[in-house]
Amino acid sequence: MAPLLEVENLRIELTTRDGIAPVIDDLSFTLNAGETLSFVGESGCGKSMTALALMGLLPDKIGRVASGKIIFNNEDLTQASDARLREIRGNDISMIFQEPMTSLNPVFTIGEQIAEVLRAHQGLSRAAAWAKAVELLDAVRIPNPKGRASDYPFQMSGGQRQRAMIAMALACEPKILIADEPTTALDVTVQAQIFDLLTDLRRQTSAAIILITHDMGAVAEMAERMIVMYAGRKAEFGPVDQIITHPRHPYTKGLISCVPHIVSDMTEERPDLIEVPGIVPSLKDFGQDRCLFASRCAYVTDKCQASRPSKKLFSNGQIADCWHAEDL
C-alpha cells in the first residue's frame, strides 16, 4: 500500500537578515495511514517548520519551499493552489498547536470555533454544525459539553482549551493530525490525560498522527517511528523501540540520556542525567557541508568537520546520518 504522505528531499528556506537559511535541509520521510510518527529535537531544529510546510502555512514572504515534494494522496502539495490548500487544511490535514492559551480566538465561543470548520468543509447548516460541535466536545471528554460550547476560551482551563483545540482539529475526521508540542504548555497530570485522549481518538478515527515534541516519554508511549531532527537535518530515523534501546546518532543518544527512567527501572540504581552540551547552531550556519552537530559531539573527528555525513541504513530499519554510526 502506498504511504499516505510522502515527503521527498524537502528543502525550506527562510529569508533572514544574514541571508537565506535552509531551515529544512533535504528531509525525506513517509507516513502510513493510522501510524504515529514523531519528530524530536531541540527548539529551532525545524520541527515546527516541517509542520507548517505540510499545512502550506509557512510565514508569508519569509519562508518558502525551495525544492522537494510533499505528496499527499498522489498530489504534490508544494504545487497546489491556495484554494486547494484551503480545502485540505482542517479537512484532510489538521493541526493542534503548542499554546492552547493563545491559539484559540478569545472573542468567539468554543462552539462557534469548532462549528465554523464544519460549515467551511462539510457545508453543514448553523444548527447542524453546532450540534456536531457539542458532540465533538463530548468526544474529547469535556463535561457538560452542551453548556461549555457557549463558553469563551478565557472561561476554560488550559487542559480544556487543548481538548477543545483537539475537537476542532478532529472535526472533519482528518487523515493526518499534526500535533505540534500539544502538551508543552500544560502541567504534568494534564499532559498524561491529553496523551491518553490522543491515543484513544487515534484508535477511533484511524487518523495518522505527526507528533512533534521534545518529550521522549511521550514518544516512547505514542509513536511507532520517530525522526530526530538537528539543525534542519534528519539525524536519525527509524522504529521508536529500536532507536531508544540503541541510538545510532550521538545526538539521539544525548537526548535519551537527558530523560530519567526511559531506560532504567525505578528500583535499579539510575545513571546520572547527562546533558547535551552547547546549543543549536544559529540559522546562518545551517546548510554547511559538514556535520552540524560536530561542535557538541563527543565522538567528533576531522571527517565530521570536513563533509556532511551520509545516510547509514541498518538492518533493523534505523537510518542515522553520522560518520560514526556503526561504532556507537
Binding site: 489538521s94 498547536f97 467551511a120
Partner: peptide, 17 residues
C-alpha cells in the same frame, strides 16, 4: 501575526473569514 489567526488559517478558512 497572532496564534489564533494562524489557527484560523490552519482550519482552512478563506482569507476573507
Amino acid at each position: 501575526g497572532s496564534d489564533y489567526v494562524r489557527t484560523a488559517k490552519s482550519k482552512g478558512l478563506s482569507q476573507r473569514q
